[in-house]
Design a protein around this nucleic acid. Structure first.
Lengths: 343, 343
DNA sequence: TATTGCTCGGACAACGTTGTCACAATAGCG
DNA sequence: CGCTATTGTGACAACGTTGTCCGAGCAATA
């Protein structure tokens, strides 16, 4: 009589049990695929589950069992950035293969926010955490790690915490790219970068210096410009450098947003300065200027990190490891008009 | 004595209560900011919380209170796609303003997977759901909606379900763009699109037809090509159309991936056919060919939808509404060389 | 047929939190 | 000074699920 009153609440296992005429525990067993339940009962339970539209309450489940929420967290800087979008896509794909949901949170480069978000995700009992660090102190996570939440850092190393890390060979890539510029005869190379406070930028700049020194090319700080936030700013800086008495014959841009601005300005002026850019981008081959990019596989970066994370979740207790993925030099853009450099 | 044994478990409110010398309930009150607790006790509890590193277990919390997990779900097609990345970014931003986490799941255009993911997110008791539909039947969500999970659909309408929806004016945008082509004298316009099974593509094609008919331009099905999946395929189709006896003098590309291929091929051939593309993209102004794009604000789309969702979560029970956001025509790319069309 | 061994169902408690209710302590009033 | 309001605190149960344990049922064997 009263059984169908109050259609407002979600069905529970008790409802299913009543409907199927079995005990609560039997429903639990069926739902959790525990073997040795009579096939006939299994069928009755499944029928009841379907009829009532029952779905297990994961809060109750993970509260009782104390384990697994089938969720991993990904902390990045900004999801709208294509680089992180690719990271997220690859991580989601691997997560899916493990029947796991992915929670994505953006730190917006703010260490305080990063801290809060990471704590929040831990409080949600995620099974594991993928982190592109924003701050440089992650010792506050040590307690969580000891409590058993596996973590893998990617793209940048963690600060003050021994943990699995997957990085790109920023330094080696920059070194190889700049070496090629130097070998092509360039001796004045303008370098534009976003912010030296970011690990990857420092590595890339170090790589550039690595390549300059052995070739006897002086490191001219007037040709290195920090704080270039967007394409417009990059264009301005390029313009300014080209107006100097001895303008650069080549530019090294440390990320792809900057590369766009550099190319735009060079194209506008009809300059034939060489451009080397860190980060490939999908329309690179369409740009109206010859361009060499230091490319890497962001998806592979995320895939490697996520697989490592799942190994940890699966119980791998070996010593934390650091993986460094290679970069690759690729020539892109319009064919060079003819590489003639200023004297 | 035994109180500090087993440092392996997370501290609970009971631990905090013991430490602070108050009752469990008082801890709960402090943690939940319930007023009328003696300031001194609040302080003691907070101190204990800090010392033990306590964080509330959200599983237990939401199990008991039956409400709010401070999480919303976003279902999209593929997170690595820049369009969806922007959607996700804007949604995450609004979610953050509401102290809410965002779970992102990708349907990969698979209705079965969409269904499973949506159910899964509902089972997780998300506070609300943002959905870019992949399938065309969402009646299976009716039960969830009635159970009180608010949902907002965006970019495409839901099938078989009355729900809040935020769309772009695909049809109007396409109409305006094609009208401009027609007014410029084009009478043979090649149309390239991804798949007619997608709502937005159908709308855009309809919009194109809307513009052709009143101008007396015949709708030539030989100039409409479905199933153009990637830039390479688009380039092939363009090449083929240009080799016809009466080649198109303009192309309308229904998404930006196609636009890239179209432009690449036109540029390669040195053709000056006009290009109209749906979707703006960040390097559009760099492309070596004049180009008009039908642009829209994807972030605004997501923002509107997410804000609507939070209004629902906040208790707005008004009749479901549909919002249509405008598009805009923008001229991009290299300046036209001189618009001379074939006779 | 009695005994053993094995399978499988069900009663019960527990996970960590919060809502309900009742009680203690204090203040306000006649 | 005793009575009621008001405020602050705690005992208890409950959320929905799962682990433990016991015992009923049944087949195989002596």
């Amino acid at each position: 009589m009263a059984s169908d009153v109050g259609r407002t609440k979600r069905p529970t296992m008790v409802d299913v049990a009543t409907r199927a005429g079995v005990s609560l525990k039997t429903v639990s067993r069926v739902v959790n695929n525990v073997p040795h339940v009579q096939p006939e009962l299994v069928e009755r339970v499944l029928a009841a589950v379907a009829e009532l539209g029952f779905r297990r309450n994961p809060s109750a489940s993970s509260l009782r069992s104390g384990q697994a929420t089938a969720t991993i967290g990904l902390l990045i800087e900004e999801i709208a950035n294509p680089f992180y979008a690719m990271i997220a896509g690859a991580a989601a794909e691997v997560a899916r293969q493990h029947d796991t949901m992915l929670i994505i949170a953006s730190s917006e480069e703010d260490p305080a926010r990063e801290r809060q978000l990471l704590r929040d995700m831990c409080a949600r009992r995620v099974d594991g955490l993928l982190v592109v660090p924003a701050g440089d102190d992650h010792s506050f996570l040590r307690a969580e790690v000891e409590l058993g939440t596996p973590m893998v850092f990617l793209d940048r190393p963690a600060g003050g915490l021994l943990a699995d890390t997957v990085l790109l060979d920023n330094r080696g890539g920059a070194r190889a790219g700049v070496r090629r510029l130097v070998e092509a005869g360039h001796r004045r190379i303008g370098v534009l970068l976003d912010s030296l406070s970011v690990y990857t930028m420092r590595e890339r700049l170090d790589g550039a210096q690595d390549a300059l020194a052995p070739a006897g090319v002086p490191y001219d700080t007037r040709l290195v410009r920090d704080g270039v936030r967007d394409p417009a700013e990059a264009a301005r800086v390029v313009s300014e450098m080209l107006d100097r008495p001895d303008p650069p014959t080549a530019f090294f841009s440390l990320n792809n947003r900057i590369t766009l601005g550099v190319i735009e300005e060079l194209h506008r002026r009809g300059s034939d300065a060489a451009v080397l850019g860190f980060d490939d981008f999908d329309v690179a081959r369409l740009v109206p200027h010859p361009l060499t990019v230091i490319a890497y596989d962001a998806r592979e970066l995320a895939r490697t990190a996520t697989e490592l994370l799942f190994r940890r979740i699966g119980g791998d207790r070996s010593w934390p490891r650091t993986v460094v993925l290679p970069t690759e030099l690729i020539a892109r853009g319009a064919a060079p008009r003819r590489a003639g450099h200023a004297p």
